[in-house]
C-alpha cells in the first residue's frame, strides 16, 4: 500500500466520522419525527461507507460482507420506522372522529 493511498484512507475515515457525528446531532435534535427517520437512514448508509473504507485499510475482504449485511438491515430498519410513523399519524388522525 502506497503512502498516498494510506493518507487518502485516513482522510476519508476522518470525513466520514465527522459526517456520522453531524448525522447523530440531527437524530438527537429532531425536531420532527420525519427528520429523525431521514437522519437514521443516512446514518446506516454512512456506516456502510465506513466499514467499506476499513475493508480497504485493513485489507480484510470479509468486512465487505459485513457492509452488505448492514446495508440490508439498515434498509429494513428505515422501512419499519417509516411505517410506524405513518401508522401513528393515521391513528392520530382517526381519533377525533371516534371520540
Amino acid at each position: 500500500m502506497t503512502v498516498f493511498l494510506e493518507t487518502c484512507l485516513a482522510v476519508s475515515v476522518g470525513l466520514v466520522a465527522i459526517a456520522l457525528v453531524l448525522t447523530a446531532i440531527r437524530v438527537l435534535r429532531g425536531p420532527t419525527e420525519g427528520d429523525r427517520i431521514v437522519a437514521i437512514d443516512l446514518f446506516g448508509v454512512l456506516a456502510v461507507a465506513m466499514i467499506a473504507i476499513f475493508a480497504i485499510w485493513l485489507g480484510e475482504q470479509v468486512f465487505l460482507d459485513a457492509a452488505i449485511a448492514l446495508a440490508l438491515v439498515a434498509f429494513f430498519g428505515t422501512i419499519a420506522y417509516a411505517r410506524f410513523v405513518e401508522h401513528k399519524a393515521a391513528l392520530k388522525a382517526k381519533e377525533p372522529s371516534d371520540g
Partner: peptide, 10 residues
C-alpha cells in the same frame, strides 16, 4: 416510504 411518512405526520 420516508417521504410519505413525513407528509402523513402533517
Amino acid at each position: 416510504m420516508i417521504g410519505r411518512a413525513i407528509y402523513a405526520t402533517g
